[in-house]
Measured scan of single mutants.
Amino acid sequence: KEEVSSHTSPETGIWVTLGSEVFDVTEFVDLHPGGPSKLMLAAGGPLEPFWALYAVHNQSHVRELLAQYKIGEL
């Protein structure tokens, strides 16, 4: 988790977690339908608090999209 928390910018890579999985979403930030700034709120940390607020994320196609960016496990 400490390593994930240091990845919060395009220069270091933008990493997020979901459960025990780690994702590098650097290439996706500008494609995020809610805008880059919304995704950047989660940079370096867990997606769960944000996904709890926005139910649109609880769809299979969203998880499939995220899976493409998986880089490891906590």
Rank of each mutant, 00 (worst) to 15 (best):
E3S: 15
V25Y: 00
E48D: 03
D30T: 09
Q59L: 04
Q68R: 13
D24G: 00
H57M: 02
F23V: 04
E21Q: 13
T26K: 04
A42S: 05
K70T: 04
H32T: 05
S5Y: 14
V29S: 05
F50H: 15
T26C: 03
L74A: 12
E3V: 14
W15G: 01
E11S: 13
S20F: 12
I71A: 09
L18R: 14
E73L: 08
V16M: 13
S20T: 14
W51R: 00
F50A: 07
H32D: 10
L47A: 08
S9H: 15
N58C: 09
G34W: 04
G44R: 04
V62T: 02
A67L: 11
A43Q: 00
A43Y: 02
T8A: 13
H32P: 09
L47Q: 01
T8D: 13
V62M: 01
A42K: 02
G72I: 06
V29Q: 12
G45C: 11
L41H: 07
P33M: 02
E64A: 13
L47T: 01
F28Y: 12
T17Q: 10
G35A: 05
Y69N: 08
P10Q: 14
G19C: 06
A42M: 05
V56G: 03
V25D: 01
I14D: 00
K70I: 03
G44F: 01
T12K: 13
Q59M: 06
Y54Q: 07
E64K: 14
R63Y: 09
T12R: 13
F28C: 05
L31C: 03
G45M: 13
V25A: 03
S60Q: 12
L18Q: 12
G13W: 00
T17K: 04
R63F: 06
V56M: 08
H61Y: 10
V25P: 05
T12Y: 07
S6P: 10
L74R: 14
H7S: 07
I71H: 04
M40W: 06
V25S: 06
L39H: 00
V56K: 09
P49N: 11
L74F: 15
S6Y: 15
A43L: 01
T12A: 14
E48R: 01
T17I: 03
K38I: 02
H61K: 10
T26A: 08
E27Q: 13
V22P: 03
S37I: 08
L74M: 15
P33C: 02
L66A: 03
T12I: 08
A55Y: 01
G44H: 08
I71Q: 10
T8M: 15
V62L: 04
Q59T: 12
A52K: 11
L53S: 14
L41Q: 14
S37T: 15
K38H: 03
Q68P: 02
I71C: 13
K38N: 14
H32R: 03
Q68V: 10
E2N: 05
V56N: 07
S5Q: 10
W51G: 02
Y54H: 13
L47R: 02
W15P: 03
R63G: 06
S37G: 10
I14W: 01
P49E: 12
L41N: 06
S60R: 15
E48G: 04
V16N: 06
E2S: 13
T17N: 07
Q68A: 10
P49R: 07
V25R: 00
S20W: 10
K38A: 09
E21S: 13
Q68E: 11
S37N: 12
M40R: 09
L39Y: 01
Y54W: 03
L66H: 06
L47K: 00
R63H: 13
G44D: 05
E2I: 14
V25K: 01
L53W: 04
L31V: 14
V25G: 04
T26P: 00
L18N: 11
I71K: 07
G35H: 00
E48L: 08
V29N: 04
T26M: 05
S9Q: 14
W51H: 08
F28D: 00
V29L: 12
E2Q: 14
H57A: 00
H61F: 08
E48W: 12
E3I: 15
H57Y: 08
L53D: 14
E27D: 13
L65Y: 06
V56E: 09
K70R: 12
A43N: 04
L39P: 06
V4N: 07
T17H: 10
Q68G: 11
H57C: 02
H57T: 03
K38Q: 09
T26H: 08
A55C: 10
L18I: 05
W51A: 01
V22K: 05
V16T: 13
V4A: 11
F23H: 08
L53H: 09
A43M: 07
H7Y: 09
W15C: 04
V62Y: 02
H61Q: 04
L53A: 14
L66M: 13
E64L: 10
M40D: 03
N58L: 11
G45S: 10
Q68S: 12
E21N: 12
I71M: 11
